[in-house]
Amino acid sequence: MLRLPEAHRDLFKKPFGTLYGSIGELLPRLEGRAVYAVGDVVTHNLLEAGVVPDIAIIDGYTMRSPCTRSPLLQARRLTAKNPPGTITDALAEAIGDLVRNPPGAIFVDGEEDLAVIPLVLAAPPGAAILYGQPGEGVVLRIVDEAAKREAVSMLEVFVRE
């Protein structure tokens, strides 16, 4: 398991992609791409907009409060334990499994906030990854070599436990 030290938490507050005010603003950028969603609200909003993500990673919470809008996706379901502030091997393996064999949803027992990092590393070039930026909107990251390099550099501040 990888743990993000408290001293480095602020590094992960800035968007890891382009910030949009709403899902509607970025819908044209999703056409013809694999779409991966991290978070209950983002997944719900995509479904409301008529976009079924190839992969959804959800935990049943939004901003640490129960999310009553958790989507019921008709897809393969995997579960993974992932305590707050960590990226577990189980989560990374589940992500890899679904990227190789979509569609599906990962139900996280814990917190899915940092799942964007292993998702960028596992995703094929051109995939669209969306996640919520609390109080600001939704972040879109199109996977390319720069995204993968940035994800690798983010992992450098984590501690293996």
Rank of each mutant, 00 (worst) to 15 (best):
L2D: 03
R3A: 07
R3H: 00
A7E: 15
R9C: 01
D10A: 13
L11N: 14
K13N: 11
K14D: 09
P15K: 12
F16R: 12
F16Y: 14
T18Q: 14
L19A: 03
L19M: 10
L19S: 02
G21K: 13
G21E: 15
S22I: 09
S22R: 14
S22Y: 07
S22E: 13
I23F: 05
I23A: 03
G24C: 01
E25W: 07
E25Y: 06
L26A: 02
L27H: 02
R29G: 01
L30C: 05
R33K: 15
A34W: 09
A37C: 03
G39Y: 10
D40G: 01
V41H: 10
T43E: 10
N45Q: 15
L46F: 14
L46W: 15
L47I: 12
L47R: 15
E48V: 14
A49I: 12
A49T: 13
V51S: 03
V52T: 07
P53H: 09
P53D: 13
P53E: 07
D54T: 07
A56S: 15
I58M: 14
D59M: 11
G60M: 11
Y61I: 07
T62H: 10
M63A: 14
R64H: 14
P66Y: 06
P66C: 03
R69I: 13
R69Q: 09
R69H: 05
P71H: 10
P71Y: 02
P71N: 08
L72M: 13
L72Q: 14
A75G: 02
L78C: 07
L78P: 06
A80K: 05
A80N: 06
K81W: 11
K81C: 03
K81A: 04
N82L: 06
N82C: 03
N82W: 13
P84Q: 08
P84K: 13
P84I: 07
T86I: 08
T86W: 12
I87H: 08
T88F: 02
D89H: 01
D89I: 08
A90K: 05
L91C: 00
L91P: 03
A92Q: 07
A92H: 06
A94C: 04
I95V: 03
L98V: 02
N101P: 00
N101C: 00
P102T: 04
P102Q: 06
G104A: 04
G104Q: 05
A105M: 14
I106S: 01
V108M: 12
V108L: 01
G110I: 11
G110A: 01
G110M: 07
L114I: 06
L114C: 05
A115Q: 05
V116F: 13
I117Q: 06
I117S: 03
P118L: 12
L119H: 10
V120R: 13
V120M: 09
A122F: 08
P124L: 11
P125F: 11
G126L: 15
A127W: 06
A127V: 00
L130M: 11
Y131K: 08
Q133P: 02
P134M: 11
V139L: 08
L140T: 11
R141M: 07
I142Q: 10
V143A: 02
V143S: 00
V143M: 01
E145Q: 11
A146Q: 14
K148W: 11
E150A: 15
E150D: 14
A151R: 15
A151N: 12
A151L: 06
V152C: 03
S153V: 09
M154F: 14
M154D: 00
L155D: 08
V159C: 01
E161K: 12
